[in-house]
Write a protein that binds this DNA or RNA. Structure first.
Lengths: 121, 121
DNA sequence: TAATTATATTATTATATAGTAATTTAACTA
DNA sequence: TAGTTAAATTACTATATAATAATATAATTA
């Protein structure tokens, strides 16, 4: 992190905020194996048309997704390759944490006080 | 991402939401080189007491920070080593993006259409 | 025990935004 | 050109939450 100015922190916060909505994560998930148009995204996620459009705009403005009009349709695709790995990283961290909490139900001498770091690798 | 259920996506979104507030990022930054008590965090961030307490509660519940009472004071420290690298990753992505946008003001044959991926490594 | 200091909680207000219905815009086609 | 379809925008409502003042809790000390 080295010392981040308030302005930079604001941008980082904005970035995370984009990823902090289930619907937007669903949209990103629906794009994980290639470009799709709005109708296809609606079908896959079950979200309403206006809603999908709005989320896609937010994702596009954040630079996470690329907009590509093609005739009467508009295709979107993930443009930031960091996103999926990052989601997976978080996901893995959550798994680790739950696993740790689960272990607390089986108190053995070895598993006690091993590490006070929930996310040790 | 492999296919994430809605329940998992919800948790991932929650995690990102915790990181999507400037004040909480400031608190995390103030802890990046070691444990601090609430008063010290208040001093370093300039945030109000109730506000810091509330943010620390949220960070603790998310497993990002560890609470350690010590006498009349309570010390907090980062417990999830993924957080700072992740913030830096985002930060770097934002830098790359701005650099790309800046290049668009100096259109040279080489810099045109090199990659339509804003975040290429 | 009373007073003090540090932290947590509660109540309140103001602001932001997700979802939706209705409308508009844009591209294609008969 | 009129009609059709896809996507974007607008207006609105409901909900969530950040910040703060006031109060409560908890640990220490005189």
């Amino acid at each position: 992190m080295v010392v981040m100015s308030k302005a930079v922190l604001h941008q980082v916060a904005e970035y995370f905020k984009v990823l902090s909505e289930v619907s937007r994560l669903e949209v990103l998930c629906s794009l994980k194996d290639g470009a799709k148009n709005v109708t296809q995204i609606m079908a896959e996620t079950g979200l309403g048309q206006a809603n999908v459009s709005k989320h896609l705009k937010i994702l596009t403005q954040a630079g996470m997704v690329k907009r590509r009009p093609q005739g009467i349709q508009v295709y979107y695709e993930i443009s930031d390759p960091r996103i999926l790995p990052m989601c997976e990283l978080v996901c893995q961290g959550l798994q680790n944490r739950l696993q740790f909490q689960l272990q607390e139900f089986h108190p053995t001498p070895r598993s006690q006080g091993q590490s006070d770091n929930l996310f040790a690798n």
